[in-house]
Write a protein that binds this DNA or RNA. Structure first.
Lengths: 341, 341
DNA sequence: CTGAAAGCGCTTACAG
DNA sequence: CTGAAAGCGCTTACAG
């Protein structure tokens, strides 16, 4: 039977429901013989605690919301996997919501959704929210931002150091003798602080190395999808500007699109144009050529985000939001080196 | 304030909580002026219903579990996206659990997990469960299987017709003049009925066309990952058996791995060896060459699965489990055709 | 159309 | 170590 309640178990074991509750939850010392009787009754009745009732009483649901733009974008699915795994290790369950990159939907999900009241905390990978959207919101539930930051928001934020990562990539390209670098993925500040930071690193490295930077080699992309990488690469090649000898894409998906365009035009990668991505999604270990990229420590990111969120949940103190940084490393593969195996 | 309850709203509006409940839920006719007063109070107090309490009372949580092996496998993340979207359209929220392809974990999640009691229904993409695992389980909650079937299980099952799809692929390869076809992805029956069905279709097409089939050209793969596709392709080329002029991989990820091996050896695709995958994940529209594949109607699959699950939830009648089929189509791309654009 | 009240299944001070 | 009882915040017959 699956409809048995604490009361039924208590009746069968001949004890009070208080005692059954203690046994089930492993609380308070219970006499061994009593425990045994209760456990037998639990077995016999196939008793399973009603998590809803428990949550209602405790004021905690044990559920977290993970809000991402699109679950089928590899970076997010890899992140979601890590988050779900970490959450489970900490006794939490994860509900995933998708915003489809729409600001209205994002706002609704996070700020207004009545359902939000059911979550103990929210992990948000924002894409379109601004501080203004947030200001009207008095968060009753802690929120931790993943990756993209919301300027001046009152939330904790976990990410890698985008400026240094981009600087590193750029310096690396210089170090292997490339001179005309293009960047694909710039975005206006309002919708893409992360993109801005990567552009900043790209610029800084040019300045440090005393290299000129042709502005026509910085190409914007509203979304970080493969098709946009293809479009941007075509624009770069057909735009009439200088032809780059290396391209830095702000994520791996853009690089995959750019790669396809180059190969279809008979451009050799890396001999003619070297290519670098960002994120180290599994996919780009298998492209031909395999892709040089920046690998953020996704596991650590998930760990840190959860640790911080749980801290906020337990203390219910939302003051002094912090920036937490996660390490990254440059992974060199065939798209920037001649020697293929 | 976010801590307001029905009672607070009722007090402020000067009505009973019953009336507030009616307004909030849009039940029963409420006098217009009363409604207005209540709505104002809801606004002023920023009242949000406690979903937990509602669920406890109603005996429904509004939550579904989606259990997949690995969320970061593109097929599953694309499926998850579709499922979450459909669930939301139907007023359900989705909790995702991952089994990591482990039978023990799968069993635990589905059959024993006390948490299961909180879900109104379960969507399961099984990978390792057998009917034996199920038999000890008296499902108190409806379960719908996605893709992989569990032989003799008492659950509804939504999938494409794998035998015909594989037959179609094979016939297509014959039709473009290929004669020695290899298949990558076969699995023993216990762990992979889907793989078996594809092998069956592959065989049937050979028989219909009166073509011989060299058994050495059927290569097994415990998991459908890129690295295994690479391993299998290498085995095929180095195994001493005949060299195929076409390879049918049982999913796109295997094909991606196989493609990488071929290209790294200077094998031309499709001139020397044609390549076909299965699933039509976004990734393979951007490989070079792009991949011919079978596209299951994932949206429809999600729709059907949810429709059926909700039916079971509403009727609580789990009898007469059915097989529901979703259409698929062969998408021809560069990996089987010379004319690239 | 609205109120007063029971009860969903649990947890947890409060006594003993 | 254990019991009797209140209450988490809601929904919903039952009256009126």
């Amino acid at each position: 039977m699956s409809g048995s309640r604490l009361r039924d178990v208590a009746a069968r074991a001949g004890v009070s429901i208080r005692t059954v509750s203690n046994v089930v939850n492993g609380y308070a010392p219970v006499a061994a013989t009593t425990r045994e009787r209760v456990e037998r009754a639990v077995q016999e009745l196939d008793y399973r605690p009603n998590v809803l009732a428990r949550s209602l009483k405790r004021g905690r649901s044990g559920m977290l919301a993970l809000v991402v733009p699109e679950l089928d974008v590899p970076y997010f699915s890899e992140l979601a996997r890590a988050i779900i795994t970490q959450a489970r290790l900490n006794g939490y369950t994860v509900v995933i919501d998708q915003t489809d990159g729409d600001a209205g939907r994002e706002r609704e999900l996070i700020l207004r959704s009545s359902r939000a009241a059911v979550f103990d905390g929210v992990l948000l990978s924002p894409v379109a929210l601004s501080a203004a959207d947030i200001s009207e919101h008095n968060p009753s539930v802690p929120i931790v931002l993943l990756g993209e930051r919301i300027a001046a928001s009152p939330f904790d934020h976990v990410a890698i150091d985008n400026v240094s990562a981009a600087r590193e990539v750029t310096e690396y390209l210089f170090s292997i003798g490339r001179r005309r670098l293009a960047a694909i993925g710039d975005q206006p500040y309002e919708t893409g602080e992360t993109a801005q930071l990567r552009t900043q690193g790209f610029r800084e490295a040019h300045i440090s190395a005393a290299r000129e930077l042709d502005e026509r080699l910085i190409v914007g992309c509203p979304h970080f999808h493969r098709s946009e990488g293809a479009r941007a690469m075509s624009a770069l090649l057909d735009g009439g500007g200088p032809t780059p000898d290396a391209v830095f894409c702000y994520n791996d998906l853009l690089a995959v699109g750019a790669l396809r365009v180059m190969l279809s035009r008979g451009i050799r990668v890396p001999e003619d144009i070297a290519l670098v991505g960002f994120d180290d999604i599994e996919e780009v270990r298998f492209t031909t050529p395999s892709l040089t990229t920046i690998a953020p420590d996704k596991t650590r990111l998930a760990e840190l985000a959860l640790q911080r969120l749980i801290l906020r949940i337990n203390t219910q103190d939302f003051s002094g939001p912090e920036e937490l940084f996660v390490s990254h490393r440059l992974i060199v593969r065939e798209s920037t080196t001649h020697g293929r195996q």
